[in-house]
Computed example of a mutant assay.
Amino acid sequence: MRLRPFPKPASARLRTRAGALALIGALALPAAAAPGRVVSINLCTDQLAMMLAAPGQLVSVTHLARDPAASVMAEAAKAWPTNRGRAEEVYLMHPDLVLAGRFTAQPTVAMLRRLGIPVEVFEPATSFADMQTDITRMGQVLGREAEAAQMTRTFAARLAQIRAATLPGPRPLAATWSAQGYMSGHKSLAGEILTTAGFDTLAARMGRDRGSTLPLEALVMAAPDLVVTGRIEKGSSRAEEPLTHPAFRALTGNHAALEDRDWICGLPSVLDATERLEDMK
């Protein structure tokens, strides 16, 4: 006697058919189209988008992207129209996507979203790991995943080479010190650049994970082997006067006036700064 399979309840048959139809429908759906018109209103997203966007995809960057004191891609940025991050001017560019930073003017971001324009907000990178996350995310929002993956692989390989070349033994002491006596925290991008270059940081020694103010007297007493400052231009503000103080100049360690633009944004160029610091040990 041949046994017949027990028939499925009608509800089960309907669920099976619905699941199959849903799967077929999902497979038939096209992938989300990459945005065709992208506007950046943040210096850091400017530069990352310039590196990853497809030709013609990025239609505007901020005016800061052309400033050689702030941007490592100042010359390349001349190829794009600039904006000043105002909602009205961005809206008239008819973007499919706007790229912003956490500290971009929030009223602008809020207004653009109320107008129905998608805005992707990127957090400032505080570590090399954050940088790689930002690169990956930028690739995703631009539909340039393959290019982003290649960039992260190249960055990771170069970083590994720098770390492998760091010699064991005593590590010299380094500090960042800028306008108003500001010192970057140990758990910051600047802190990781210094430690990767083979230094211990004064911030770590003092237990300061985040940025804080360090009096000139405390810096002099610590006598670091290297002090990294911003560049002092003619007509600089009073906040920068401590950087020209005789006591500061009398420090016996090295003074490195590295270009601020190398430290502002989490871009692959931070490894250039890291290698320059290695040469100062």
Rank of each mutant, 00 (worst) to 15 (best):
A26H: 11
R37I: 15
P242G: 03
G19Y: 04
Q180P: 02
I117Y: 07
E278H: 04
L173S: 05
G207E: 13
P68T: 08
H245N: 15
G85Y: 05
A273V: 13
G101D: 06
G230R: 06
V109K: 01
A149F: 02
A146Y: 04
H94E: 07
A34G: 00
F199G: 09
P172S: 10
A110Q: 14
S40D: 08
P107N: 05
L267N: 02
M1E: 12
D67E: 12
R231I: 15
G143D: 06
Q132D: 02
P168T: 13
P242E: 00
L14M: 07
T152E: 12
G191W: 00
A257Q: 10
W80M: 06
A12E: 02
A157G: 01
L92S: 09
R153G: 13
S212D: 15
C44Y: 06
Q140E: 15
P172M: 01
A100Y: 01
G253H: 04
W80F: 10
F199S: 11
Y182Q: 13
A49L: 14
D209N: 03
T62L: 08
R163M: 11
N83D: 07
T152L: 13
Q47A: 06
E233M: 14
R84P: 01
S212H: 15
G235Q: 08
L99F: 04
Q132I: 09
S269V: 12
M138L: 09
A125V: 00
L202R: 12
E259Q: 13
R210M: 06
A33S: 06
A105W: 00
M93L: 15
L64Q: 12
A222W: 02
E89S: 10
H186G: 14
D262V: 04
A49F: 02
M51D: 10
A69K: 14
R86D: 00
R144V: 15
G230E: 12
S212I: 14
L258S: 02
V98F: 13
S236Q: 09
A79M: 06
V98M: 12
P168W: 09
L189I: 05
T274P: 04
H186V: 06
L243H: 01
M111K: 10
A49V: 08
A105P: 01
P242Q: 03
R238Y: 08
K187R: 14
A256M: 11
L219T: 00
A70H: 05
V119Q: 01
A53Q: 05
M183R: 02
A257R: 08
V59N: 01
R15D: 13
G181M: 07
D134R: 15
V228P: 00
T45R: 06
P242A: 10
G198V: 03
S11D: 14
Q180T: 12
G207M: 07
A31V: 13
D209Y: 00
L52Q: 01
Q161F: 03
A204K: 07
R210N: 03
R261T: 08
R249K: 15
K8Q: 13
T154M: 11
P107T: 03
Q180M: 12
M280N: 04
P81C: 11
A49H: 00
